[in-house]
């Protein structure tokens, strides 16, 4: 049951990491609350998802034994891999369903690569919507 790092220095480093992580969680949540549209909120949500979680779990890893610390690092790694997947899926869903405001995108490179019937506000899309209603 020996912790990875013991002593006052390890405690201070761990406390510093956890405070920094909690602060980035808070900043991300404030951004999620206050930013105006979905892409901006997605960007704010990445702060708790990766930075906040990794800092806090690294702070935790310093205080537990080595086997547990390795698992914590794996959890951080898993989160760092999966957070972009969720962001990408949500952003794509927002684009395809027309949930983005028209002026949200400065550059729209995806439109050039999509077939015409997949475009937002497209005629066939509207027909599709009428059919479903």
């Amino acid at each position: 049951m020996n912790p990875v790092a013991a002593g006052p220095v390890a405690d201070v480093v761990s406390a510093f990491l956890m405070l920094l992580g909690a602060l980035s969680c808070l900043l991300g949540a404030i951004g999620l609350m206050r930013l105006p549209d979905l892409p901006a909120r997605l960007q704010a949500a990445t702060k708790p998802q990766t930075l906040g979680l990794s800092l806090i779990l690294l702070g935790t890893a310093l205080r537990v034994e080595l086997a547990s610390a390795v698992t914590l690092v794996l959890v951080v790694l898993f989160q760092v891999i999966t957070a972009p997947v969720i962001s990408q899926l949500v952003g794509r869903a927002a684009y395809r369903s027309g949930a983005l405001p028209d002026d949200a995108l400065v550059v729209d490179e995806l439109a050039e690569h999509l077939p015409a019937d997949a475009l937002v506000g497209d005629e066939s899309d509207r027909d599709d919507r009428d059919d479903r209603d």
Binding site: M18, Q49, L53, G59, T60, Q79
Partner: peptide, 20 residues
């Protein structure tokens, strides 16, 4: 969905604080 994902991550964070 984005908000819910952040809440799930904050649950993980809080459990991590408990472990620490």
């Amino acid at each position: 969905i984005v908000a819910l994902d952040v809440i799930v991550v904050l649950t993980v964070v809080a459990a991590g604080v408990y472990v620490a």
